[in-house]
Design a protein around this nucleic acid. Structure first.
Lengths: 158, 158
DNA sequence: CATACCAAATGAATATAATTCAGAATTTAC
DNA sequence: GTAAATTCTGAATTATATTCATTTGGTATG
């Protein structure tokens, strides 16, 4: 783990707040909102990108529109030891697997998976997960309905 | 549930693919890449927004930089009946609660929570969750490390 | 088939925004 | 305090967004 200093000031936080709300807000608008020159904002945004404060600009697409109506969470018990993430890294390579979290307690992972339907989930488990050596067991939780799905972090006021 | 036709053609899918990769890719670049006029792309993007195919443009911020190092998933058993989501909606209002999923089987919810540290999590559970009437029990899963966290859907080739 | 119709694309014109950079202002470190 | 570094401004240039009249292509219809 590297020690990194992020050192965000008030203006940085405001920029992040605006861009987290809408990643396509343009420089000029941000500048107007903060009462600064667009060039200053541009520099700051680039710096935030370089410092890996901003990781990505992402378009959230309606899963229904792409016929990915099914969401599931799967707990996976593995033979991975502490510090080893072989199984985790293999899971991460699967496109339908959106998230892979190494969790405490159970020497296992929690993964988030999107498929078209239950058939797609079964296929994934039969054809892909079963190919991964080191998986001991799985426990699947099916999402009936998503009430909230945000990626917006709480940005401190100061 | 409304019946909606999304009717995405090849060009739409390509646009989505590009924009999912980088939400800040500009119109002109997309147009160049697809060999079309920028104005045509603009129209399509606006239509995708109106049709709610594109839901949001979101900046993914490094949680460490905002001192939100702790990620947890909490299973919540509630008194909500089928079709009722009172507890779910209350959970959704909590800013630290990024996701709320109504899950099958347990008449409960799975929520994703980001806090600064374990103290922040304890605070949240003591001060906020405990205020919600109808929660029967909680089971917390702590994330040691996130191996993958993507929001990119699998976009079909055709 | 010809015609009308609709949806979507082009391309030119205009309005805005991004980007660069020199110089001024501010902050930081000693 | 002062030098060095950082950040800001504002003007100039380049590039992009946006609008819109016109064209194109597909499809239904008499």
């Amino acid at each position: 783990m590297e020690k990194v200093e992020y050192n965000l000031d008030q203006v940085d936080l405001q920029i992040l707040r605006i861009m987290q709300q809408n990643a396509r807000t343009n420089n000029a608008d941000i500048a107007r909102e903060l009462g600064m020159a667009p060039s200053a904002i541009l520099e700051r945004v680039k710096k935030l990108e370089h410092k890996s404060v901003i990781l990505d600009y992402h378009t959230q697409i309606n899963p229904d529109a792409l016929d990915q109506k099914m969401l599931s969470f799967i707990f996976i018990k593995s033979h991975d030891n502490i510090g080893d993430q072989r199984v985790g890294l293999l899971l991460a390579k699967i496109p339908e697997v959106l998230e892979v979290h190494d969790i405490a307690g159970d020497d296992g992972y929690l993964i988030k998976v999107r498929t078209s339907d239950s058939g797609g989930l079964v296929d994934l488990m039969r054809n892909t997960l079963s190919q991964i050596d080191g998986i001991i067991s799985t426990r699947t939780t099916i999402v009936l309905e998503t009430v909230k799905e945000s990626h917006k972090l709480v940005i401190p006021n100061s």
